[in-house]
Design a protein around this nucleic acid. Structure first.
Lengths: 331, 331
DNA sequence: TTCGTTATACTCCCTTTGAGCATTATTGGG
DNA sequence: CCCAATAATGCTCAAAGGGAGTATAACGAA
């Protein structure tokens, strides 16, 4: 197509305009990979689909036959899980030089977040669904602040701050610790998943940060590690999801067709890693008309039977951006 | 490095696990481009840096020498504008097959949003800074709803809805029109920039949608067009920025060192495309301690002199996410 | 001096939201 | 059959947030 060629030359003309040379080898050494953070919530626990002895996120090369990145991922995941992907969202594209491979090779990793419902283990799957707090144990505050934070994480981080080369850096590190981990009377902010991971990474408390540098260093913090920067990608996905559930009704992609309000609440809590006030949660969900009664009751474990609800899919059309703003309890 | 190679084989092992074949040609036909939406606000108008007769966003190939995508962009933009990029954020990565090039070639476009202050035109720049509402004239609601919406856009969109093949599609289109353009008593939502662009695109009202199909079709809506999908990328950038200014103090990256509160307000209004309530805006900015007085006054045009303020950079360290939540006026 | 214009200070009121209390409906022992 | 435990559900209250208007102050220009 001549239009296509014109467009390309236009691009390079633009590049030349702003002082960028067209590379000698037009096409070389670049591989694009798709990496997926596939999330499900089962039995009140948040899970992520893993492979390779639970040390990797599913990933694979982007192929020329795919119509678009999104469609590539969709095809790929549905073949894998035999289940429709309710919701897919692009997370981030990385191309850092230190991700592996030789210097003249480069992987561009395009990461996605996908929401689905957990499926029984298929044949050929190496590991399957893992509780995501196995990888980031400091993120689960549902039953209170995890003891490992005070026991292990904060002492190590404070040592890291103390070892700063200048007072300014020291102060900056102290501030980041306080903000991300909610010390000094600051509130815990569940959305800062990535910032916490990166702080720990910088502090050398994450095994991934110490690859290739086999010196002693501080003892790494607990939490299962992953290949390459997959744990960072997982952190990115969790952060995005925790932010998103507050203003967009994506939680329902993780729920069965009908559910009780407590089940819905437990799902939100699993994702957010913290508890919400039950009555306020119901008030919010109902007054926004996110759900409708099925007319049936759940004959669940102990207590008064709960009404079963169903997601009102119409809200996706009625409004643009709605909110399941979590009423977060301080306790 | 053996670790690197192990990691790569691991990736392909993972791919094989989930049913994806390793491509025969390991590296082929993929080019990565960086595209930047560089924003400045001058004289109360929002501008975007363009090239090629104002028909393209600055872009260029991602080179292997760059340490990371972000650093590549930074280097590149600062060489171009001779001005530090205050804030850079990744927007989206596209690889749609219809973006140009031959079928065995593929461009991956990684787009970024960058905030800076407008610079005088340098030599060799084809065009420079353009008011972004030249490209998306339906987005500027500062002086009321643009007449072209009622005169041109809505009639064309309603015709598009009416021409739907089935009643369901018709209803869906009507809903999208109402939600994105705020008809039927719905409020105007300034964040839906991309949704509006895509609706117009689908309706064939955007020249970019009609390339290669030289039939008549409906008359395109006003607004300057761009090469490839650059206008879509611009819409993505504006949407992101409009959302971001509400919870993160990025506006200050566009302001001079010292400014009056009205100047700050005009900047926010320029970005949001709508007016805010002056007194409430001041209340919000001051009670969040986003700014501090310089002690000086501005001897500006007409009226009582205004205090000059300066951004309190400390807030970036003190808090994690703060808000310049716009108090939006209904009028 | 008066008017136009902008800055700045306060007030009002309605909605949202965090938190707690009370009541209802079941199940599973004594 | 009564009672404790467990949930579901209904309701109230107070504080904070946010939209909107009034009032006053300080300047330049006619």
């Amino acid at each position: 197509m001549s239009t296509a060629e014109t467009a390309t030359s236009a691009l390079y003309a633009a590049a030349a305009d702003i002082g960028i040379a067209e590379p000698d080898v037009h096409v070389s050494g670049i591989v694009a990979d798709l990496v997926a953070v596939l999330v499900a919530v089962t039995a009140g626990e948040p899970r992520v689909l893993t492979l390779q002895d639970a040390r990797a996120l599913p990933s694979g090369p982007f192929e020329l036959t795919h119509r678009s990145l999104q469609s590539g991922l969709h095809a790929w995941v549905e073949r894998q899980t035999h289940h429709p992907l309710g919701y897919v969202e692009q997370l981030y594209t990385f191309a850092d030089r230190d991700r592996g491979l030789a210097p003249d090779q480069r992987v561009i990793s395009i990461s996605y977040l996908g929401l689905t419902r957990e499926q029984p283990r298929g044949a050929g799957e190496a590991t399957g669904w893992q509780d995501w707090y196995n990888y980031l144990p400091w993120e689960d505050h549902r039953v209170g602040v995890p003891p490992m934070i005070d026991a292990v994480v904060l002492p190590a981080l404070r040592a890291f701050a103390k070892s700063a080369p200048t007072p300014a850096v020291r102060q900056d590190r102290a501030n980041r610790i306080a903000v991300t981990f909610g010390t000094d009377g600051r509130p815990w902010n569940e959305e800062l998943v990535l910032q916490r991971y990166e702080l720990l990474f910088e502090a050398g408390l994450i095994p991934e940060a110490r690859r290739g540098t086999p010196d002693a260093g501080p003892a790494p913090v607990q939490g299962r590690s992953m290949i390459l920067d997959h744990r960072r990608i997982l952190a990115t996905g969790i952060a995005r999801l925790r932010a998103k559930i507050k203003y967009h009704p994506v939680v329902f992609e993780l729920m069965p067709d009908t559910f009780t309000l407590l089940q819905l609440q437990r799902c939100v809590e699993a994702l957010a890693g913290r508890l919400v006030h039950k009555q306020n949660f119901r008030r919010l969900v109902e007054q926004q008309e996110l759900v409708e009664e099925t007319g049936q009751l759940s004959q669940e474990t102990g207590g008064r039977p709960a009404k079963l609800f169903r997601f009102r899919r119409e809200v996706l059309f009625e409004r643009a951006i709605v909110g399941t703003k979590l009423p977060i309890s301080r306790s």
